[in-house]
Amino acid sequence: MAEVAIARADLDRREFGTRDAHGIFIQRLGKSFISRGNEIHALRGVDLSVRQGEFLCIVGPSGCGKTTLLRILGGLEKPSEGGLDFRIEHGNDPLQSMVFQEQGVFPWLTVLENASFGLTVRGVPREEREAASRHYLRQLGLIDFERYFPRQLSGGMRQRVNLARAFANNPAVLLMDEPLSALDEQTKMLVQEDLLRLWEGSKKTVIFITHSLDEAVVLGDRVAVMSHRPGRIKAIFDIDLARPRRALELRNDPAFVAIRGRVWDSLREEVLSSAATDRTDAR
């Protein structure tokens, strides 16, 4: 069993060019929960290799285990089987940080204090951490609001605070679980643009979970499609759209429409069979 996993990882490293390539290697990962006496397999046999520096989007039907996968990567949950290997160079910076949904912003901290949170708990001196945080707040159009409390901001601005907090922490890997799903359509596109701009100027690896196919294709270098529960990686698509990308303009681009169609063909089956199992579960 272990040998199979190692062989698979070797295969992926070869695929990336060199044997000791950098990236995140997920092998045969499984996770089950006990819920009301029943064992629920959220993930089973997830194989995925993420290249260092890429923007990888993951889509899948709801309940397929996307959140579970990301929480395992973020160290908030332990896998039941299989393993993951972060072969990422991060020097003195943290390995990974998560971008949470809106409710992950602390209401009792100001925008600036929220953005500095990761640096504060790492003991970075005030001057330094505020300078780093302000850099991102400025890029995200929040610099005039640094003394505000989150309650005083709109949803889009709160989500930008979340982004600023993760970027200011300067991790090598950013893990995002549907960070924009609570936003209205226009605000979402604007924050996507912000995110692309910040990421394109960095060398960070991003794993971005979304239920929106458009979002996945606009943002990702690759899009991984997950099967219905128990989730595994069903297919991976390369998104060969030029960078820098403009989230606002891309949506009518014929190349974009074509790729989205191909990914959707793969995802549609899973959504349909997921709906079917939901019906049998309910019975």
Partner: peptide, 20 residues
């Protein structure tokens, strides 16, 4: 950034800065 702020009408702060 400015264009963003203009385009996103909903993106104004809910409360003015002088009156938290």
């Amino acid at each position: 950034v400015d264009a963003d702020k203009l385009a996103a009408g909903a993106d104004k702060p809910a409360v003015s800065p002088v009156q938290p």
